[in-house]
Deep mutational scan, measured.
Amino acid sequence: AGSTTLRAVGKLQVRLATKTEPKKLEKYLQKLSALPMTADILAETGIRKTVKRLRKHQHVGDFARDLAARWKKLVLVD
């Protein structure tokens, strides 16, 4: 499952970095939220930084902030 999640995170990371349409960004964040994330995947992909960049986004900022905070707890636990 780890390598599958890693690939999925990579694809979503590229999309988050290149797309600007709020509905698409929200969809990608929801998909990321549903993935079985680990501290290793967060470290290897840097996805948390990508998501943190969206914290001030008018439409998806709250979602991005919550997701980044949830992942921060995951990193602190591991």
Score class of each variant (00 low, 15 high):
Lys27Met: 13
Thr5Gly: 04
Lys73Met: 07
Leu76Thr: 13
Asp78Cys: 12
Phe63His: 10
Ser33His: 00
Pro36Ala: 08
Glu26Ser: 06
Thr20Asp: 13
Lys49Thr: 14
Val51Lys: 06
Thr45Met: 05
Gly2Lys: 09
Ala17Gln: 12
Ile41Asn: 00
Lys72Val: 01
Leu42Met: 08
Leu67His: 02
Ile47Gly: 03
Arg70Asp: 04
Val9Ala: 07
Gly2Leu: 08
Thr50Arg: 02
Ala34Leu: 07
Val77Gln: 12
Val51Asn: 00
Glu44Pro: 02
Arg7Lys: 12
Ala68Cys: 13
Lys72Ser: 10
His57Gly: 01
Asp78Gly: 09
Val60Met: 00
Tyr28Gly: 03
Gln58Ser: 12
His57Met: 13
Gln30Trp: 04
Ser33Phe: 09
Leu16Pro: 00
Leu42Asn: 00
Leu67Asn: 00
Arg15Gly: 15
Gly10Tyr: 15
Ile47Met: 00
Leu76Asp: 12
Leu54Arg: 03
Thr5Arg: 04
Lys23Tyr: 11
Lys73Asp: 12
Asp78Val: 04
Tyr28Asp: 11
Thr18Lys: 07
Leu32Asn: 00
Gln13Cys: 05
Val77Gly: 14
Lys56Asp: 15
Gly61Glu: 03
Ala39Tyr: 08
Arg48Lys: 04
Val75Gly: 09
Gly46Cys: 04
Lys72Thr: 02
Ala69His: 04
Lys56Ser: 14
Arg55Leu: 12
Val9Met: 04
Met37His: 03
Lys49Trp: 10
Leu54His: 07
Thr45Ser: 06
Arg48Asn: 07
Arg53Gln: 14
Thr45Asn: 00
Ala43Asn: 11
Tyr28Ala: 11
His59Cys: 10
Val75Pro: 08
Lys19Arg: 07
Lys56Trp: 13
Ala1Trp: 05
Leu42Gly: 02
Arg55Glu: 15
Val14Arg: 07
Glu26Ile: 05
Arg55Thr: 14
Val60Ile: 07
Lys24Glu: 15
Leu76Gly: 12
Pro22Gly: 08
Lys11Glu: 15
Ala17Arg: 07
Tyr28Leu: 10
Lys19Pro: 14
Lys11Ala: 14
Phe63Leu: 12
Asp66Trp: 10
Val9Gly: 01
Leu54Gly: 01
Lys24Arg: 08
Lys24Thr: 13
Lys72Tyr: 00
Lys27Tyr: 13
Lys56Val: 11
Gln58Leu: 14
Gly61Met: 00
Met37Leu: 08
Tyr28Val: 12
Lys27Asn: 12
Arg48Gln: 12
Ala64Asn: 00
Ala34Asp: 13
Ile41Thr: 04
Arg48Cys: 14
Thr45Phe: 02
Met37Cys: 02
Lys31Trp: 09
Arg65Thr: 12
Leu76Ser: 11
Ala1Glu: 15
Pro36Lys: 06
Gly46Thr: 04
Leu16Gly: 01
Ala64Tyr: 00
Val60Asn: 02
Arg70Phe: 05
Ala69Asn: 11
Ser33Arg: 06
Ala39Phe: 08
Arg65Phe: 02
Val51Gly: 02
Leu35Gly: 02
Lys52Val: 09
Arg65Val: 05
Leu67Val: 04
Lys73Phe: 05
Lys19Tyr: 15
Trp71Ile: 10
Lys11Thr: 12
Leu42Val: 03
Ala64Val: 02
Lys27Val: 11
Lys11Trp: 04
Val9Phe: 00
Pro36His: 09
Arg70Asn: 03
Arg55Ala: 15
Leu35Thr: 02
Arg53Phe: 07
Phe63Gln: 10
Arg65Tyr: 02
Ala69Trp: 04
Trp71Met: 09
Ala68Thr: 09
Leu25Thr: 01
Leu76Lys: 08
Gly2Met: 12
Ile41Gln: 05
Gln13Tyr: 05
Leu67Trp: 00
Glu21Leu: 05
Leu12Tyr: 07
Thr4Glu: 15
Leu25Gln: 03
Asp40Trp: 15
His59Tyr: 09
Lys49Ala: 15
Leu35Tyr: 03
Ser33Pro: 03
Thr5Asn: 06
Val75Ile: 12
Pro22Ala: 09
Ala34Phe: 06
Gly2Arg: 07
Leu74Val: 06
Thr18Asn: 13
Val9His: 00
Lys52Cys: 14
Leu54Asn: 05
Ile47Tyr: 03
Gly46Ile: 00
Gln13Asn: 02
Val77Ser: 13
Val51Cys: 00
Thr18Glu: 15
Leu32Arg: 02
Gly61Asp: 02
Ala34Trp: 05
Gln30Ala: 06
Lys23His: 13
Lys31Thr: 11
Gly46Phe: 01
Ala43Arg: 09
Leu16Asp: 05
Thr20Trp: 06
Arg7Ile: 14
Thr5Tyr: 07
Gln58Trp: 14
Asp78Ser: 07
Arg7Tyr: 07
Gln58Ala: 12
Val77Thr: 12
Phe63Thr: 07
Phe63Lys: 08
Ala1Cys: 09
Asp40Phe: 15
Val60His: 03
Thr45Lys: 04
Gln13Thr: 05
Leu42Arg: 01
Gly2Thr: 12
Gln58Cys: 14
Thr50Val: 10
Leu12Asp: 05
Ala43Thr: 08
Val14Leu: 09
His59Glu: 11
Ala17Ile: 10
Gly46Trp: 04
Leu6Arg: 05
Ile47Lys: 03
Pro22Arg: 03
Ala8Ile: 14
Leu35His: 00
Asp40Asn: 08
Val14Trp: 07
Arg15Pro: 04
Ala17Phe: 04
Lys23Ile: 08
Glu26Leu: 11
Val14Glu: 15
Leu76Pro: 13
Val14His: 09
Arg65Ile: 08
Lys49Pro: 04
Lys73Ala: 13
Thr20Ala: 10
Ala43Pro: 02
Thr45His: 01
Ala8Thr: 11
Arg70Ile: 01
Gln30Phe: 09
Lys24Asp: 15
Val51Thr: 01
Leu54Met: 04
Leu16Cys: 05
Val60Tyr: 04
Gln58Asp: 11
Thr50Gln: 07
Phe63Ile: 13
Ile41Gly: 02
Lys19Trp: 14
Phe63Ala: 04
Asp66His: 07
Val77Leu: 10
Val77Arg: 10
Thr20Gly: 09
Glu21Asp: 13
Ala68His: 03
Arg53Val: 11
Arg70Lys: 10
Val75Asp: 09
Leu76Val: 13
His59Trp: 14
Leu6Ser: 09
Thr50Trp: 12
Lys11Asn: 13
Gly46Asp: 04
Val77Met: 09
Phe63Val: 06
Trp71Ser: 02
Ala69Ser: 08
Leu74Ile: 08
Arg53Leu: 13
Arg15Thr: 07
Asp62Asn: 07
Tyr28Met: 09
Val60Arg: 00
Phe63Trp: 07
Ala43Met: 12
Ala39Arg: 08
Leu76Tyr: 09
Gln13Arg: 07
Tyr28Thr: 13
Arg55Asp: 09
His57Pro: 02
Asp62His: 06
Ala34His: 07
Arg65Trp: 06
Leu29Met: 06
Ala68Leu: 12
Leu35Lys: 00
Arg53Cys: 13
Asp62Cys: 05
Lys73Arg: 06
Leu74Arg: 02
Ala68Gln: 01
Met37Glu: 07
Leu16Ile: 12
Arg55Gly: 14
Ala68Tyr: 12
Asp62Ile: 00
Trp71Pro: 00
Ala17His: 08
Leu32Ile: 01
Thr50Ala: 08
Lys27Arg: 09
Pro22Asp: 08
Thr18Leu: 10
Ala69Tyr: 03
Asp66Lys: 08
Ala43Leu: 10
Thr50Phe: 11
Val77Lys: 10
Val77Pro: 13
Trp71Cys: 01
Ala64Glu: 02
Lys31Arg: 09
Leu16Ser: 00
Leu35Asn: 05
Ala68Lys: 04
Asp62Ala: 06
Leu29Gly: 01
Leu35Ser: 03
Asp40Thr: 11
Asp66Cys: 08
Arg65His: 10
Asp40Tyr: 15
Ala39Lys: 06
Arg15Val: 14
Gln13Trp: 05
Ile47Arg: 01
Leu12Gln: 02
Leu42Tyr: 08
Val51Ala: 02
Trp71Phe: 13
Lys72Phe: 00
Leu67Glu: 02
Arg7Cys: 08
Val14Thr: 11
Val51Arg: 00
Leu32Gln: 02
Leu12Asn: 05
Leu35Phe: 05
Gln13Lys: 09
Lys49Glu: 15
Leu32Lys: 05
Arg55Asn: 04
Leu25Gly: 02
Val60Phe: 06
Asp40Val: 15
Lys24Ser: 12
Tyr28Glu: 03
Arg53His: 11
Leu25Ser: 02
Thr38Asn: 10
Ala34Tyr: 00
Glu26Gly: 05
His57Ser: 08
Gly2Ser: 12
Asp40Pro: 06
Leu29Pro: 04
Asp78Leu: 07
Val9Thr: 03
